[in-house]
Amino acid sequence: MYEEWPSKLDGAVVWSRTPSTGAVCPVLPDGCMDLLWAGGRLLVAGPDTHGYVPEVRGIRYAGVRFAPGTAPAFLGVPAHELRDLRVELADLWGGAEARRLAERIGGAPDPAAELEAVAQGRAAAAVPPDPLLSEVVRHLDAGGTVAGAADAVGLGARQLHRRSLNAFGYGPKTLARVLRLQRALALVRKGVPYAEAALRAGCADQAHLAREMRDLAGITLGTYEALAAEEIA
């Protein structure tokens, strides 16, 4: 079973997943990065460009999902270095620190809450994320164009691409596609018909949305709906 709720960290989400015997819905690209506690291990999930199915099932997960562009400052590593990867936190923060934090979280009554507390403490001392990139996210998530986003923040195309790689793990065009897909899926989860969801999200038509699901998620809309419903049941 999967649950999530708003974090005390600006724009972040805290989530938990308990072991289930049913099918697992793939983690779909969303522009975000996660700090994970997985059965006693601390991991970092980099920005995805395709659907990811957890390799280890039957264990308890907790996570803090950072808003697009905010995790690199927290982690101290450019997002593109973690693209499509799951890495041990020890590889980024050192083995001793990762073991100390894993023991602290594993010994807490509520690992998700303790993981959030760890993230809050670390974020307070981190360099703030690039404010221009936050504006880029808002522009693209509202359906704006990449060119319009560049104009809005006063960056050239090459500058925007370079800073996007560091912040999001990929260029602004890919981020725009990912955010558009997530807008469509949010509408589908509310029961909006596929064709209407596609148009409202910014796709040309339902066939366009179906292609984006195939390319970015690796599954069909119908399969996604069924798996998502089973996971939260």
Rank of each mutant, 00 (worst) to 15 (best):
G171D: 03
Q206K: 13
R180I: 04
L216S: 02
A176H: 13
R183H: 07
R183I: 03
L209C: 07
A210H: 02
A210P: 00
R158E: 11
H161Q: 06
L140W: 11
L187N: 08
L187S: 10
C203D: 15
G148C: 00
A195W: 03
G156N: 03
V192A: 00
A150W: 08
L199Y: 14
A184D: 04
H139K: 05
A184G: 15
H208T: 07
H161F: 04
A157V: 13
Q206N: 02
G156M: 04
R163M: 06
V146K: 00
A157D: 03
L221G: 15
Q206T: 01
A195M: 05
R158P: 00
E212F: 07
L181I: 07
A149W: 12
A201E: 03
A152L: 10
A186K: 14
A184Q: 10
A142E: 09
G144Q: 11
A201N: 06
Y194S: 10
R214W: 02
Q159R: 14
L181E: 06
L221N: 09
H208A: 04
G143K: 03
V153S: 14
G148H: 03
A186G: 09
R189T: 01
M213P: 04
D151S: 01
E196N: 14
G143C: 05
A204F: 08
Q159V: 01
E212M: 05
T174R: 15
R177K: 12
A167K: 09
E196F: 14
R158V: 12
R162T: 12
Y170P: 14
R163N: 03
L179T: 00
L181R: 14
V153I: 15
L155F: 08
Q182N: 12
H208M: 00
A157N: 06
M213C: 13
R183S: 06
Q182H: 15
L179A: 08
K173A: 08
T145C: 06
L185R: 13
H161T: 05
Q182C: 09
G154R: 05
G148E: 04
H139I: 02
S164W: 06
A152N: 10
C203Y: 15
I219D: 05
R183K: 07
L179Y: 05
E196Y: 14
A186P: 00
K173M: 13
A201H: 05
R158Y: 10
I219P: 06
L199E: 08
D215Q: 11
R214S: 06
R189P: 01
Q182K: 11
L187Y: 00
Y194T: 10
N166L: 02
V188M: 05
G202D: 12
R211S: 08
D151K: 12
A147Q: 11
E196T: 13
L187D: 07
L155Q: 10
A157S: 11
E212V: 15
L179E: 01
A176D: 04
A217Q: 09
